[in-house]
């Protein structure tokens, strides 16, 4: 494998947190409210992940995302368990790709419960496709400095005398 012993990898105990043990259709059904509830943690994590491009540097942000997701589902279970389950079952059974189109009635019931009890409003249908601006406290990673090669060909000095070409130009009809 390409990973040598010099690469610092986190211990397994550092990486072990309670994971979200929830299947796909349920996540899709919860997605809009979940994304809205955990917006800050999600943005923080995704910014870190894309800026650093290294899984090791965003472990804490990732843990925050998972913790927020767990918290959201606990709240939903306490407040809107039946409404949410009804919607998730509809999403799972109505189509092969968990499309949300077929479940507008149950969605309305769940949205109302979420708004009344948890005060989470369902965002517009394209909310998470929009570009976002996120203000973070994490310092920006340093850009890779420009490579300097010791054996590069030295450039001409700025003030060197530039004589006109002795035999003219190949494209004389264009330049003169």
């Amino acid at each position: 494998m390409v990973v040598t012993m010099d690469v610092k990898l986190p211990e397994e105990s550092e990486l072990t947190v309670p994971e979200v043990n929830i299947s796909g259709p349920t996540l899709i059904a919860a997605s809009f409210h979940l994304g809205k509830y955990c917006e800050h943690a999600n943005n923080e994590f995704m910014l870190c992940r894309l800026e650093e491009n290294d899984a090791r540097k965003c472990i804490n942000e990732g843990k925050a995302v998972t913790a927020c997701t767990m918290e959201f589902f606990r709240k939903v279970k306490k407040a809107c368990f039946n409404e949410f389950n009804q919607y998730a079952h509809c999403v799972e059974k109505s189509s092969g790709d968990f499309s949300l189109t077929h479940c507008r009635k149950t969605q309305g019931v769940m949205d109302k419960c979420m708004l009344d009890k948890l005060n989470i409003e369902r965002p517009a249908f394209g909310y998470f496709c929009e570009a976002r601006v996120h203000d973070t406290k994490r310092p920006k990673p340093l850009e890779e400095p420009k490579a300097v090669y010791p054996d590069a060909t030295p450039a001409l000095p700025e003030d060197v005398e530039k004589k006109p070409a002795r035999f003219g130009n190949r494209f004389y009809w264009m330049t003169e």
Partner: peptide
């Protein structure tokens, strides 16, 4: 809408 839903759960 489906893309939006998937992007919302993507970070997790």
């Amino acid at each position: 809408e489906m893309r939006s839903a998937k992007m919302a759960i993507y970070p997790m």
